[in-house]
Computed example of a mutant assay.
Amino acid sequence: MADEAEDRLGLAEAGPHYHGHRDRLRARFRDAGADAVTDYELLELVLFRALPRRDVKPLAKALIARFGSFAEVIAAPPQRLAEMPGLGDAAITELKIVQAAAQRLARGELRRRTVLSSWSAVLDYCRTAMAFADKEQFRILFLDKRNQLIADEVQQVGTVDHTPVYPREVVKRALELSATAVILVHNHPTTPFRVTLDHAQYR
């Protein structure tokens, strides 16, 4: 009996089985970088803080199965994430923080470049910001005379396959910002990763 009690005590002191998994996963990410972990493992790393007392591997795998990829999970609307059993407000907030951080990084990279000579940066930023939105958005990037980004604004949000555009409002806002050019962007919710860009120059 004493031996059994000691065995149980040893297991209790060792902690839940997933603690060792968390330590190993963190070490692999730290030592080998993001390419060394799969999408669901990266999700696990994000969920660890929000769900410290749960084995989050099954939840991470379920999220990937439901939405398709790490990027699609992060970009999913909060109301759809809330439909997942076991995913509460704290975990959803963690996912949205990661999405916001990715958008800030992409925007910062875009601001450091001459936009019109960096179309790949524009596309990367727009995909990060809106590719997985569940409704069509009409977004405007306002540029100065050096083709640097002045502002990035979502002017309209429509339905899954349509959003209204009001040219007068586009011109009005461009004049307010003293923009000399604009890039007009809209996404395609039915075709993730696809965004459409148009460029207009003011004289």
Rank of each mutant, 00 (worst) to 15 (best):
D31L: 12
T38C: 01
D31N: 14
A27E: 15
G33P: 09
A34M: 12
R26L: 08
D23R: 14
R28C: 00
D23K: 10
A32P: 03
H19G: 05
L42R: 15
E41F: 05
L42Q: 13
Y18R: 10
A14D: 11
H21F: 15
E41N: 03
D31C: 04
R30W: 04
G20K: 13
A34H: 05
R28T: 07
A27F: 10
D39Y: 01
G15D: 11
F29W: 07
L43E: 00
L25G: 00
H17W: 11
D31F: 07
P16F: 03
R22N: 15
F29Y: 14
A34L: 14
H19R: 14
R30H: 06
D35A: 14
D23A: 12
R24I: 02
D35V: 08
R24H: 10
R22W: 15
H21D: 15
L43M: 11
G33I: 09
L25P: 01
R24T: 08
R30I: 03
L43T: 00
G33R: 15
A34Y: 03
D39G: 05
D39T: 00
R26G: 01
A14Q: 15
G15Y: 09
R28F: 02
D35R: 14
R24G: 06
P16T: 05
G20V: 06
A32I: 04
G33V: 09
P16E: 14
L25T: 02
L42P: 00
G33A: 14
E41A: 03
G33E: 13
V37I: 02
A32C: 09
D39V: 00
L25D: 05
H17A: 10
Y18E: 14
R28L: 11
L42H: 10
H19Y: 09
H21R: 15
H17F: 07
R28W: 02
E41K: 06
G15L: 08
D39C: 00
L43I: 06
H17E: 13
R28G: 01
T38V: 01
H19Q: 13
A34F: 05
A36L: 05
H21L: 13
R30S: 08
P16M: 11
L43V: 04
E41Q: 15
F29A: 05
V37M: 00
V37F: 00
D23F: 08
A27G: 03
E41V: 06
A34G: 06
Y18I: 01
D39S: 10
L25V: 01
G20W: 06
A36G: 04
T38M: 01
D35S: 12
R30L: 12
R28M: 04
G15A: 09
F29T: 00
P16H: 09
R28Y: 04
L25W: 02
L43A: 02
D31M: 12
Y40N: 03
F29R: 01
Y18N: 11
T38Q: 05
H21C: 07
A14H: 12
R24E: 13
G33T: 08
A34P: 02
L42W: 07
G15T: 06
A36R: 05
G20C: 03
G33Y: 14
G33S: 11
L42A: 14
G15K: 12
A36T: 07
T38H: 04
Y18L: 08
A14Y: 11
G15P: 07
H17Y: 10
A36Q: 07
T38E: 06
P16S: 10
P16N: 09
E41I: 04
D31Q: 15
H17K: 09
H17C: 02
Y40M: 02
D23I: 08
R30E: 10
G15N: 08
T38K: 04
R30Y: 03
